[in-house]
Amino acid sequence: MKKAIMLMTTLIFTIALTACASDKEVNPHQQEEAIPVTSHTPITSNMVNSEGVKVGTATLAETTEGVKIHLEAEGLEPGTKAIHIHETGKCEAPDFKSAGAHYNPGQREHGFDNPKGFHAGDLPNIKVTDKGTVNVEITATNVTLKQGEKNTLIDEDGSALVIHAQADDYKTNPAGNAGDRLVCGVIGKK
């Protein structure tokens, strides 16, 4: 009798579960809502010197903190150098003026120490070793690679990453007395 009751209970439980499951019909032609992808494929930029020769690469990737930039280059003059994101994705040697001014969608002044600053494209100085190499990671917290955002680096004319001859003083408008543009890499265009 106990076996019959247990068998009956199991049967009733199974029927109840089946009934609950059938409340929600599955339509094989119904599409589920798409889940937006938030990660981006990293962008690699060839860094060229004033003779137009490739001296390194910069890899940019979207993170939750901002855009992470991994820069590797060689053949540079040793010392502390300014590095900035510029507003136009054009690197015409020898002076790279084609890259335009600093990337500045917020229309602020230059420099981390400037009370009216800083540009979204302002980045911390980098150190080039005595061997003329640099291998650094920088996070640009005020920009994105997401298209359509106000502070995106990927728009119609792109943007550029530029290494300057001197250190950025972090206060002087418009470029921190960073000197000539020595190395440039196009970041991308929409």
Rank of each mutant, 00 (worst) to 15 (best):
P36G: 10
S39M: 10
L153R: 09
I69E: 01
K81N: 08
A21R: 09
K116A: 13
K97P: 00
Y103N: 03
K131L: 03
K68R: 15
K3Y: 13
R181I: 08
I126K: 01
D180S: 15
E156S: 14
T64H: 13
V37T: 14
V134E: 10
P94H: 03
H164R: 09
I85P: 00
A175W: 04
H29Y: 13
T80P: 05
V136I: 13
L60K: 06
F96W: 04
F13N: 11
I85L: 09
T172D: 02
K146M: 13
C184K: 03
G185C: 07
L17A: 14
V26Q: 05
D95M: 12
K127P: 02
H86C: 00
L182T: 14
G179H: 02
E25K: 14
E32Q: 12
L153H: 01
D155R: 14
K3T: 01
A58T: 02
V128Q: 07
D180V: 11
H29I: 09
H102W: 05
M1D: 14
K150R: 13
Q107V: 12
F96T: 02
T129L: 01
L60D: 07
F13A: 14
P28Y: 02
L11Q: 01
K68V: 09
L71Q: 03
K24R: 08
P105S: 09
P115Q: 02
N151D: 15
A16L: 15
D122R: 06
K81G: 07
Q31T: 11
T14S: 12
K24N: 09
I187M: 02
Q147E: 15
D180E: 15
I126S: 06
N114Y: 07
S50D: 15
T18K: 11
G148S: 12
H102L: 11
D155Q: 10
I12P: 01
P78T: 10
G106H: 12
A120H: 12
L17K: 00
E149Q: 15
I35Y: 11
G132V: 08
Q147K: 15
V53P: 02
I163Q: 03
S39F: 13
T133C: 01
K3V: 06
H86V: 00
A73K: 01
G89E: 03
V162N: 06
L123K: 06
D157N: 14
A160F: 04
K90L: 07
A93L: 00
N125C: 02
T57R: 03
L76W: 02
E87S: 09
